[in-house]
Design a binder for these strands. Structure first.
Lengths: 338, 338
DNA sequence: CCTCCTCGTGGAATCGATTACATCGATGAC
DNA sequence: GTCATCGATGTAATCGATTCCACGAGGAGG
């Protein structure tokens, strides 16, 4: 693979001149520029990004650490992040934490070692010392979707969606359809989204004069299996809930599995709703009522905030809002008999 | 961020010694090793991977260019590739081509500029000059799932699944259920998987004495929308097909959309099957019969082959086989009335 | 006691770019 | 005619590691 000095040699100029042409510095005579360009083309020269990064102290790469690639919400997020980054001339390196703190740490470390210009994180757990370190030692950082608190992290912008209103809409929807005993499959308490969704659900219930007994809160981990287990416990209750709200799409899937394996039907026997909407929910039996996040906007906003930080501009947190997408999994659609 | 010379200074040794400790070279006295390690810990020093890469000519990073991140098959592939790579001490940089040749080129270029040690590609189109170049200029390369032919590419191993037998099983399954007019939603002719699946389908049909008229082959592009369009054309035929086979999961989804929007039912009015199995197919209405690829094995084998190439060992192509997973979308399961 | 080898360590070149500074010829002002 | 200025280019330092080579100390062998 040819290096800059090969180009220089072939064009009969110095490496400095070649570099100037490549970075289109104004002070280069047109004919020497042409000579250099010709040499570049002849050799099929491509500048070595590694060497360039070493010298300039920037890689034009962003790190994105997500909790689970197999979750369609995160893959959509990853996709929009990549799109936005590419538009701004950055690449994205994705790390999949698989909801495991140790893997999350592994990726943060690797990315920082590779000197990515900035880090986008959707943290899996409470807070690892490593991430605190990264934030403190100056790696520009932005949280997406989930975030963590901790000293030194006040400066880190958070780009997220507030599902409060949508959750309230969902509870209203369920209430209108006659459901009174509602249960929730929560995400890990260590995650903000895990806690927030339960809180939103609880306060919405209160608004409608409904209680949320302890045995109607099941602890999940955002994976399908846990949705299954929690649902099994719900259904074994003497008075099983009439409606189940899963805090993410994977757990909703697990819940559906369990319900179906018992020969019960959605929504006739149990209503089901999920946080996070995905294309497949339209095609399940029945189509699942969900709370949709503006995933694309989330990704774009996150990249925007991160690049602002990287380029030294002040970056602000962003909160978007989710909306309810009613389908048939909670009961007949509006306009028909309940 | 401290550099190696800061560590050297603090430990009172030279940078050479620090480097030796870091790469655990045997010739270092135990007490100086301890001094260095202490300095490393004190400063929170982490070696700069960029500088190291420049010097050693290796990044310990693999590039993976896939056709579409939103397709669950590819995200599962990406995940297994990352797992396998991590086990071997490599990172993975993913590029999403979104089924667009220009984006594919963009990613190949970026990855090669970044001097990744090897490239895993599932090519979107026929063959771009850029990829040929990359292959020829010595970047170790392996094709996964799809591949392209061309001079200079004979050396590139292909890790794929052969769906032939499974497609034959599917046709047998459809035939046994009484379906005779079968149609296929094909993938782009520029991709090998696009062509192969049609060929396998056609020869399986021939085996059963069935024809595949031109109007029963619809040209799709592996995206949901095209599945919808092609299905619409099928259903507008004077004698619409009794069964539709989609060459990937996204097009199956589109087909289902279209069928349902016309008030028709699967499988009563039209049977439906798909290449690529995904978790959601269990939950659709009805569950969709699919041909499952051993995605995890695919990813592992691909990484194995690529690392073999990188480390100078001979690498062989690998062909795994797919299997039919019958569900309800083609008709009642075995054992009941047809 | 001298030589030779080994061991531990440091000095310095190197990877491939960017860029501050120096150089040099030409131009223009006075 | 002289000098300052400017434009185009080259020289060399630099980024942060790795690694070849040299060197001195100490031990073994003669």
């Amino acid at each position: 693979m040819p290096a800059i000095k090969d180009v220089a040699q072939r064009a009969g100029v110095s490496v400095a001149t070649v570099s100037r042409v490549l970075n289109d510095h104004p002070a280069v005579r047109t004919d020497t520029r042409d000579k250099v360009l010709a040499a570049v083309a002849d050799l099929g020269y491509r500048p070595n990004a590694v060497a360039r990064s070493l010298r300039t102290h920037q890689t034009r790469a962003l790190g994105l650490v997500i909790s689970d690639v197999l979750n369609p919400f995160f893959t959509e997020l990853a996709r929009s992040v990549e799109d936005a980054a590419r538009d701004r001339g950055y690449s994205v390196v994705i790390g999949n934490a698989d909801e495991r703190p140790d893997l999350q740490d592994h990726h943060v470390r690797t990315l920082v070692d590779r000197r990515i210009d900035g880090l986008l994180v959707s943290p899996t757990d409470g807070g690892s010392p490593l991430m605190l370190d990264a934030a403190r030692t100056g790696t520009p950082m932005v949280f997406v979707d989930r975030w963590i608190e901790g000293e030194g992290l006040d400066e880190v912008p958070v780009v997220r969606t507030d599902g409060g209103a949508a959750v309230r809409d969902l509870v209203a929807h369920l209430h209108a359809l006659g459901h009174r005993r509602l249960a929730i499959i929560a995400g890990p308490a260590a995650t903000t989204t895990g806690r927030e969704r339960v809180d939103a659900f609880r306060s919405a219930l209160r608004e409608f004069g409904l209680a949320l007994p302890a045995d109607h809160i099941g602890q999940g981990d955002f994976q399908a299996d846990s949705g299954r287990r929690v649902t099994a416990r719900f259904l074994d209750l003497p008075h099983p809930p009439e409606a189940i709200f899963a805090a993410d799409n994977l757990m909703a899937l697990g819940a559906m599995d369990e319900i179906r394996s018992r020969g019960l039907r959605v929504p006739d026997d149990v209503a089901l709703a999920a946080f996070d909407d995905i294309p497949w929910f339209v095609h399940t039996d029945p189509p699942i009522t969900a709370i949709a996040q503006p995933t694309g906007d989330l990704g774009h906003a996150a990249v925007g905030a991160l690049i602002d930080r990287i380029e030294g501009r002040p970056a602000a947190s962003v909160t978007l809002s989710a909306r309810l997408v009613p389908r048939r999994s909670c009961g007949e659609p509006e306009g028909s008999t309940p």
